[in-house]
Computed example of a mutant assay.
Amino acid sequence: MPVTFRKSFRILPGVRINLNRRSWSITLGGGSGPRWTRSSTGRDTYSADLPGPFGFRTTRRRRGDR
């Protein structure tokens, strides 16, 4: 069974630093509104909760990153 690690720190209202075994990321927004996450591995993720059990998420890699 693999061992995983994930930790999230709230540094300001609406701003979080997320750490895991391979990378770190910063998230702006949250709650029931839209969120934007930028990862140290080169991914940008935009997500939002929609009414009911629905949500929206799109992820893309930044140019020049692996």
Rank of each mutant, 00 (worst) to 15 (best):
V15I: 09
P53C: 05
T58W: 01
P51E: 05
F56T: 00
T27M: 08
F54W: 09
K7I: 03
A48D: 01
L28W: 15
R43W: 06
I17R: 14
R38M: 14
L28I: 11
D49A: 09
F54K: 10
G31M: 06
R10V: 12
T41C: 07
F9N: 11
G55K: 13
G52W: 00
L19A: 12
T45H: 00
R22Q: 11
F9H: 12
L19G: 02
G33F: 07
T45W: 00
R16I: 02
S32V: 12
N18C: 12
I11W: 08
K7H: 12
W36P: 01
T58C: 07
S23A: 08
R6F: 07
R21G: 06
L50F: 11
N20D: 15
R16D: 12
S32D: 12
L19H: 07
S40L: 04
W36R: 13
D44N: 10
T58E: 08
R16N: 14
W24A: 10
D49T: 15
R16A: 03
I26S: 04
I11N: 13
S40D: 07
G33H: 09
W36G: 06
F54G: 11
R61S: 13
N20R: 13
R57I: 05
I17C: 09
G33Q: 08
P13H: 13
R10Q: 06
K7T: 07
G31D: 02
R43C: 07
S23M: 08
F9I: 07
T27K: 11
R61K: 13
T58R: 11
G55F: 15
R10L: 10
T41D: 15
